[in-house]
Design a protein around this nucleic acid. Sequence first.
DNA 1: ACCTTCGGGACGCCCCGTTTCT
DNA 2: AGAAACGGGGCGTCCCGAAGGT
Lengths: 214, 214, 214, 214
Amino acid sequence: MPKVSPERLEATRQQILDGARRSFARHGFEAATVRVLEREIGLSRGAIFHHFRDKDTLFLELAAEDAEEMSAVVAEAGLVQVMRELPARDSGWLGVQLEVSRRLRTDPAFRMAWEQRLETVRAAAVERLRRGREAGVVRDDVPVEVLAAFLQLVLDGLVLHLATGSAAGDQDQQRAVLDLAEEAVRRATGPAVAARTDMDEDFPATTPAQEASA
Amino acid sequence: MPKVSPERLEATRQQILDGARRSFARHGFEAATVRVLEREIGLSRGAIFHHFRDKDTLFLELAAEDAEEMSAVVAEAGLVQVMRELPARDSGWLGVQLEVSRRLRTDPAFRMAWEQRLETVRAAAVERLRRGREAGVVRDDVPVEVLAAFLQLVLDGLVLHLATGSAAGDQDQQRAVLDLAEEAVRRATGPAVAARTDMDEDFPATTPAQEASA
Amino acid sequence: MPKVSPERLEATRQQILDGARRSFARHGFEAATVRVLEREIGLSRGAIFHHFRDKDTLFLELAAEDAEEMSAVVAEAGLVQVMRELPARDSGWLGVQLEVSRRLRTDPAFRMAWEQRLETVRAAAVERLRRGREAGVVRDDVPVEVLAAFLQLVLDGLVLHLATGSAAGDQDQQRAVLDLAEEAVRRATGPAVAARTDMDEDFPATTPAQEASA
Amino acid sequence: MPKVSPERLEATRQQILDGARRSFARHGFEAATVRVLEREIGLSRGAIFHHFRDKDTLFLELAAEDAEEMSAVVAEAGLVQVMRELPARDSGWLGVQLEVSRRLRTDPAFRMAWEQRLETVRAAAVERLRRGREAGVVRDDVPVEVLAAFLQLVLDGLVLHLATGSAAGDQDQQRAVLDLAEEAVRRATGPAVAARTDMDEDFPATTPAQEASA
DNA sequence: ACCTTCGGGACGCCCCGTTTCT
DNA sequence: AGAAACGGGGCGTCCCGAAGGT
């Protein structure tokens, strides 16, 4: 028999998670002291530790939440789309991602537990590429696993790049770079065309580039 | 008149740097406590802080040393070659790199000071690609700046990937992925050839793949 | 007009006191955190602090209750009888007593307030011994105040001994020890008889031992 | 190769132990906060925790030290002598003893480890009484084990009594009470003589009381 | 009225980087 | 160069008051 409406409770929980995300992203895990968290979240220790056992648990649940969302987006829109939208809508996700990587490196137990999530994303990407190949937009001279690994690698690169704050750079160039990555997994459609495809939207038969050249 | 020979001094300094690298890499900056450093280096606080003002300075000089070396290798052998050799010889470099990224994100002053180094590497890569283009091995339908950014992105991805300890993965696949990246910046030599080129060694006109098919 | 009957209220109060006694006894005052109290009592903070202003008050009232009962029993049955029955029926009383002693030591204000109770017990014991002397069972070569102090000392010893959990020991020996204590305050009835008297029951003229030897 | 003389080190260690004893005695274990310890010891946290892993360890070693000394004194001078000298020279020993008792009660592991020490003291007391019996000063109608338990009980009582600060009381009465206890274990030398014997000094054949009456 | 849960903030322990002494 | 001492500050616990439900 909850004395406070479940929505109110969940709202507080989200308030904490969001503030924590911003804090961890901006300062890093250890520099995001509980005092910093308090300030950014707008609640006191009492509230924070009432909802999460400890700072570590808070971080872990935060990471889990982000990973969950990530998986969903990749499954729905594809890795490339994720990359394209990455710079735009970041509310701490990148920073947290960097912290997760760090943690993966230093904490074997965490790594073990996390591996499952990595595999989920990988599988989603592979499946998506396979369908793309059947639709004829993905090259078929290289195993989809390799293509997936390649895209994953580029995504990792993008995460690291953006996370370090290099986002300020030329946006046109950034798009061009992603075009390059996408082209690398597409079926060659002609001599050296850096195609901007909406592979992520139902694999249309023609790309904007092709349309433009039409 | 120094009591110990300058070489001895320099040796101790390197001993400290190397131990510190291992520590920072394995545990991360803050978890690499002075106690941990002592143990890994094999010297006590006194010795360590005799050579470096404080822990922070130690880290900074370490990062600088690594960056220096990185620049040199890129200028000489190229980004792709760096990537290929990355998994093999890591003695903490990757971990430190991750810590540097983290720092770049959270410490604006550090970022400012570091930008110079990033630019140096970028310039070296661009220059190298320009020469490659003149030699006819690098595609000329995309600005070299974009190609450089692309390679840099892949390198970043590789760093993040390997740093998180995912190195255990299939080595063949890893090579194939890098082939894909390299192909993306090469002049198309035929339909869908995943070429393994030694672009990094004087841009030979023929790739091993071509040789094999010859 | 109260919604619950006064009996119900008193029952809850007792439930709290009993749970608190067990908690304080088992863990000690500070380790008996409010959370522990909640668990042991079976009610939540709100309920507990609705009946007692705060943890400290709860402890104080608990101690007072125990002291009250103690006084009554001593006045009625005598110190020796208390000692004999001590090991049998302990539901936390011993532990609380130990906590009280501790508090007496560290908290001057508490000591001041408690002194009254100590004096009450002492007076009851003295009075009882005086009557015993008149009945001829208590030795008259030593002031009753000294005898009372002696018995009080032995009781204290017993409290400390049992409170530390040493109760497990040999029960026969424990009885023999108390016989020794009792003998020390009795009028000598012959050469070295370790008499087990029911001094606590109307000072019978003859002891069981004497009866046995009769 | 210690850079500081071992004596200096041991001195510091003792300084810490002594300050800790005073603190624990005056305030109790938990109220003796680290801040209090610092103040009383005259050293900073750094120093304290350099010598002792944590507050708990500090307490344990302190208790051990006291127990060690206790054993030695009992073996040499006997329980009764200890009791007689107890009020005079207390520098926190009593308070610590009370804390130990408390701990014995609440911490089973501690109890297990401590049992050994208790047994040591008991054995020393028994042995001493046995020799006393052979010398003809200790009564032989009661097993020495019982006598030892009795004295131990009185000692416990004294500890609790004094520890709670009741020491202020009449000193003559206190001595009389102890005489009573001693008499209880002595061989009867005549009708109701509350003898003050130096049982603790080689069991002299005559007691001061006897000398006085001579 | 009685009870529960949420939230606040003081503070306890002790870790950590650093300085001082040897 | 090593060991001892320092003191700032991090995390998380704890007691309790407020808010809210039955």
